[in-house]
Design a protein around this nucleic acid. Structure first.
Lengths: 193, 193
DNA sequence: ATAAAATTAAACCACTCGGTCTAATTAAGG
DNA sequence: CCTTAATTAGACCGAGTGGTTTAATTTTAT
């Protein structure tokens, strides 16, 4: 079929560009320039900008879910320590962008989640996938008596997830990790058994 | 000076439009149409779209800070109960938009906080103002022994604030209050003394 | 009343946007 | 090798962007 350009490569460029610059602030031409493909080829792969963005989220969301799953499966620490090391890693990963890049799916949700049902539901679907991965680890931590059982595993997963997103919003404008570290310390102290 | 149009009214229209639709998704023409003023008049008041957005944030940020301050000053409950009633009210206010409108300053931060230093610092400044109001109430709650003293009042204020923002992100795509209520319950249980 | 300053009004500008179209090129099948 | 289908290529399109300009109107000061 295709012979020169690779859909996945274009999606990866889209991921980078959208995550750093948002959706409406980015034109198709910017994607074309950064991925080095002409417009005709782009519209051969994707129906529209919206369709493209949806597929970007889809690919990233699924890749990230698998990555998380593997991370926790390979982690040899206790469930709670796995979660802590995961979030510590997440915080470190944000250093590259001066803590202002954030998460693509969160950024997209906030920017267009209200007007664009297609992107909103795509985003929500992937959130749910991630939350289930987190919840399974939380659940183990509850069995270990490391994590409070006052709330369900999924509720605690949502709590971790939404809390971290709130922090990402804050660091978008503070542009340093100070509050990320405080959030980390507070959250894991509070959800302890 | 001015005789027909009122700067504050245009800013209020800007607040509504930007909050619901974001920054880059909104053109000056939309602001003009909804506020019923011609372009010439707009550029008589504001230097540019960016300048306009900055002033929108400025006005809303300051109004909101005063509103919060008054709310807590007039609240006759205990400090913790004041905080709870405040967030309960915040959650209810979001019902109007099917829980997908969010906070203007948060939305702006996430959308343009990374690229636009002017808007980022304006947003951050108002966050800090709000956080100080919250922190003063938290502080009273700590004196009452209603709220944990394991962390500083400002840290807890940030925790509440960022947590609520994370929840706003989530409801942008879930579009219902379920998780807002869970967050409320969890947070206030966790920060209790 | 009149001159000067401020404001209102909208036509207009260059530019960019997402998307289409047609032609050339390449790949695959018989 | 030749036909057919898919892909590549980018010029092109109408609509909309933020912003400027110029003229008319209204306010203020004299």
């Amino acid at each position: 079929m295709g012979y020169k350009y690779n859909k996945e490569d274009i999606l990866n460029v889209g991921y980078d560009v959208f995550r750093r610059n948002g959706y409406h602030n980015v034109g198709i031409n910017q994607i074309l320039k950064e991925s080095g493909i002409p417009k005709g080829s782009f519209y051969n792969f994707f129906e529209s900008k919206e369709d493209f963005a949806q597929q970007v989220i889809e690919q990233y969301g699924e890749n990230n879910r698998c990555w998380m799953k593997d991370y926790f499966e390979e982690c040899t620490l206790s469930a709670l320590e796995c979660l802590k090391s995961f979030y510590a890693l997440m915080i470190n990963l944000n250093e590259k962008d001066d803590y202002s890049g954030g998460c693509l799916v969160n950024n997209m949700s906030v920017e267009v989640g209200r007007q664009n049902d297609v992107i909103a539901s795509e985003a929500n679907q992937h959130f749910i996938g991630w939350l289930n991965v987190l919840a399974s680890v939380v659940s183990k931590g509850q069995e270990n008596n490391e994590i409070t059982s006052e709330f369900s595993a999924l509720e605690i997963a949502e709590y971790l997830h939404a809390g971290f997103y709130g922090v990402l919003s804050r660091t978008k404008v503070t542009r340093n990790r100070v509050y990320m570290d405080t959030w980390f310390e507070m959250t894991f102290k509070l959800i302890g058994a």
